[in-house]
Design a protein around this nucleic acid. Structure first.
Length: 829
DNA sequence: AGCACGCCGACT
DNA sequence: GTCGGCGTGCTC
């Protein structure tokens, strides 16, 4: 059998260091065959074999003539005609890898859309577009096509075999280009092309003015509406031969019925055409929303702040009209033909903001979200790189798009924890990484926006690292809601509580319903009851994979683990003591919903949490229903706090503030303040002041008073003092090391060994632990944590990271320790 | 991340 | 006597 052309027959003069999409610490060097020297460039993907027979699309990082000491394999093919990433992106990747202690390959994996990440696991299918015409195929292409008509599916290994290892990717690329085959990817299968109705004149009237006149006369006597609509269509067709039905509806102010009539009369026809999702809206309306005086002043202050600081925080209370100010800044960047990245928390990527920005920016804007399919992502990637799209609205991963001329990054809701990626590596914080990208690589500006800035960010304004502009008035006639705390311990004593509802809250709900206003209730716990507990022995039913209590879900009548998804039926007897005394303890959103249906049967109630919106459009649907007031009362978890603007919401209730405040984390009160303030901000956005009721057992916690007074400064002053006193960020930097292994003894040994060795390399007082986390086992893996706390100096940071990496190598050299997984999390916010 | 090599336990 | 379990090391 013929061997793969791994080693070139012509002498190699050039070499390429490539990034492999793997968790490997270095770059690998491949020989660059003479025929590729002229075409290969840094930032292009190349086909390489790595290991026994695995093929990867690697990325060229450097081309040079330094012959390595070892023998190299050669690059099998060059996959791109142009670089898909530039030097700036590569430098950014390298910074992310070094700052967050991961490999550049892992960053590459996070950065590239999967459509650009070919590996030999990709499977090949015949394309539905293939017409069976074999005539214009080369021999190699023919072989593959023929095999596919028999086998239906081929792996890359099989393709290699058929081709005797000759230029696999070249053949596949050619077949892809000719639309003979397609690569099977999960998302591609689910992809349905977006189509829209287009309106066209019926065939006889298309080119001939007189027949058109005849058609026109035919309707004009009968129906004025139809005539108007037809007139409008003719107008639109003159400007653009492609007229969307929706476009006509608005232009002619027509009803769908009118169009239907015209279709029935065979004067016009409707055609469905696929449309690109990236261009699915019409031209910008360019409605110039007037800025209020306050907003104008704020904008001026921002410009002024940017003169001296590349990063500026806009601290504007909820409902103060921050978005309009962002829009003005974006317009300015666009006027200079620059690009803008608008980042916001994943969940807040609702139609509301998208629609608003599309109205202003039209086709200059693209939205980068988790539901884009492969092709769309690749398309979008190219638009950004070619600078044919100017504004990206997206969640954290949009940070890795290949911007050509980035001038501004807006980070809305800057405090939001979902900007931090938890799993997998790179565990980066999009806000912090964005600031590096903007200020160190693109010479761009960053605007951070929040009503409740994170302590770190606000501290940076206080030490003059960032500029600060405060917007403390609500926009227009909007007034801040009145906030009231109800002591539910007292209400319980008075026996006034009805299950989880205080009389104050119930009265307010009833009043709000009478006023035909809407209500949002916040309960930070999904499911029906957190635990199923034995009344006799206090044993709670546990997950078999994780050390957590299972949560009861009534709708499915089972017990579920919120960490690994394990679920089981309700056992009849306590597995610990055998008595049938199992009871549900605590309460979640599902239970709140049930109880409320009984207490207030007339209300239309819906629930918003991961259980109800897990389906693709569930969230959008729910939001739409709430917007249209098909729902009176929305019960939700964290989700309801994020960027949803509903004009008609009058009352917001927080069922239990205690669970937020007791959370065992140094960020608990920060998050509680942010959350309660954000939820409260949902109340009464226009004209009438809203009402907020917070229920709590412990009403003395200072955060409650700060929330009631909407006093960020008081909150910040108290919190920053605590952070200082207890050596937490922003005064200290945290690095968390998580050790995982199926054996408890092994993780414990590994973590202890690690800590001891690390103590010989860095100041031992900076090392805390190892400790067992609150949940000691997740997905059958036992966990140990080492927390490193270091004063905020850059030299210390580098030194500490190096010590960690060295210790990691040292540990891997120990017997039995190689299988212990270590996750390094820098700034584990 | 794969993948092969190698060293110890239960089986045709 | 072998098959195969996983722990270990290497991949340009």
């Amino acid at each position: 059998m013929e061997q793969p052309r791994l080693f070139s027959d012509t002498p190699i003069a050039y070499y390429a260091d490539v990034i492999l999409p793997l968790a490997l610490p270095q770059y690998y060097t491949y020989g660059l065959p003479a025929e590729y020297v002229a075409v290969a460039r840094v930032g292009m993907r190349v086909e390489v074999q790595f290991g026994k027979n695995r093929l990867y699309a690697a990325l060229v990082r450097r081309i040079h003539t330094d012959r390595p000491k070892y023998g190299t394999k050669t690059i099998l093919s060059v996959l791109d005609a142009e670089a898909i990433v530039g030097e700036t992106q590569l430098r950014f990747w390298e910074w992310v890898a070094s700052y967050y202690c991961c490999t550049v390959g892992e960053v590459m994996n996070a950065a590239l859309p999967s459509g650009l990440k070919l590996t030999s696991e990709t499977r090949l299918h015949l394309s539905p577009l293939f017409d069976g015409d074999l005539s214009n195929l080369t021999d190699d292409e023919y072989l593959i096509t023929e095999a596919l008509t028999i086998r239906n599916e081929l792996t890359m290994e099989e393709v290699q075999k058929i081709l005797n290892h000759r230029a696999t990717y070249a053949v596949i690329n050619a077949l892809l280009f000719k639309r003979v085959v397609r690569l099977k990817e999960e998302l591609q299968n689910k992809y349905k092309p977006l189509t829209a109705d287009f309106v066209q004149l019926a065939e006889p009237y298309r080119s001939d003015e007189t027949t058109l006149q005849y058609a026109f006369d035919k309707v004009v006597n009968r129906s004025l509406r139809q005539a108007e609509t037809l007139m409008a269509l003719i107008q639109l067709l003159r400007q653009n031969p492609q007229v969307r039905k929706s476009e006509l509806l608005t232009a002619a102010n027509a009803s769908p019925d009118t169009i239907k009539k015209l279709v029935e009369k065979k004067i016009i026809v409707l055609e469905k055409h696929p449309i690109s999702r990236l261009n699915s809206y019409t031209n910008p309306v360019n409605e110039n929303d007037e800025l209020s005086i306050t907003q104008q002043q704020t904008l001026a202050s921002l410009h002024h702040a940017f003169d001296s600081h590349p990063t500026v925080l806009l601290h504007g209370i909820t409902g103060s009209g921050k978005t309009q100010i962002y829009i003005e800044l974006i317009k300015k960047a666009l006027a200079n033909n620059h690009q803008v990245l608008y980042l916001l928390p994943e969940i807040a990527l609702t139609n509301q903001l998208t629609r608003r920005l599309q109205k202003v920016f039209g086709d200059d804007l693209v939205v980068y979200h988790s539901r884009l399919n492969n092709n769309e992502r690749v398309e979008l990637w190219q638009h950004i790189r070619n600078h044919t799209k100017k504004i990206v609205l997206g969640a954290r991963s949009a940070l890795f798009l290949p911007f050509a001329h980035l001038a501004l990054i807006v980070i809305d809701e800057e405090h939001d924890p979902s900007f931090k990626q938890q799993e997998p590596a790179p565990r980066y914080h999009a806000r912090d990484a964005a600031i590096y990208l903007a200020t160190q690589i693109h010479n761009a500006q960053v605007l951070l926006g929040s009503a409740t800035p994170s302590i770190e960010t606000y501290a940076n304004t206080q030490n003059n690292k960032y500029g600060l502009v405060t917007l403390s008035q609500r926009f227009g006639t909007a007034v801040l809601p009145s906030v009231q705390v109800v002591n539910i311990a007292d209400e319980h004593k008075r026996k006034a509580m009805q299950s989880h509802f205080s009389p104050q809250l119930l009265t307010a709900i009833r009043q709000t319903l009478e006023q035909k206003k809407q209500i949002i209730l916040f309960q930070n716990r999904r499911g029906y009851a957190p635990a199923y507990v034995c009344a006799a022995c206090q044993h709670a039913i546990q997950c078999i994979h994780c050390d957590v209590s299972l949560t009861h879900h009534k709708s499915t009548n089972n017990l579920r683990c919120h960490y690994c998804g394990y679920n089981t039926t309700l056992p009849p007897k306590c597995p610990a003591c055998g008595l049938p005394n199992l009871q549900l303890k605590g309460f979640g959103t599902e239970k709140v919903e049930d109880e409320l249906r009984e207490l207030i049967p007339q209300a239309r109630i819906a629930r918003m949490d991961w259980d109800t919106v897990s389906t693709k459009d569930g969230l959008q649907q729910l939001i739409a229903n709430f917007e249209d007031h098909k729902i009176d009362l929305l019960i939700g978890t964290q989700m309801v706090t994020k960027g949803l603007d509903f004009d008609n919401v009058h009352l917001v209730g927080i069922l239990s503030a205690d669970s937020l405040l007791q959370y065992p984390d140094f960020r608990a009160s920060e998050q509680a303040f942010q959350l309660m303030t954000q939820v409260s901000g949902r109340a009464g956005r226009k004209h009438t002041p809203g009402q907020v009721i917070i229920q709590a057992y412990n009403t003395t916690h200072p955060v409650l008073a700060e929330t009631i007074a909407n006093n960020y400064t008081a909150f910040y002053t108290r919190e920053i003092a605590e952070r200082h006193q207890f050596h937490y960020p922003p005064f200290y930097r945290l690095i968390s090391l998580q050790f995982q292994h199926p054996q408890q003894k092994t993780v414990a040994e590994a973590a202890t060994f690690f800590a001891n060795h690390l103590k010989t390399l860095i100041n031992p007082t900076h090392i805390l632990g190892p400790t067992t986390p609150t949940i000691p086992r997740i997905r059958t893996q036992y966990i140990q944590i080492i927390l490193i706390k270091i004063p905020r100096q850059n030299t210390l940071l580098h030194q500490t990271k190096q010590a960690i990496l060295d210790t990691q190598v040292h540990l891997a050299g120990q017997k039995g320790m190689t299988t212990v997984r270590i996750n390094i999390d820098v700034d584990p916010h």
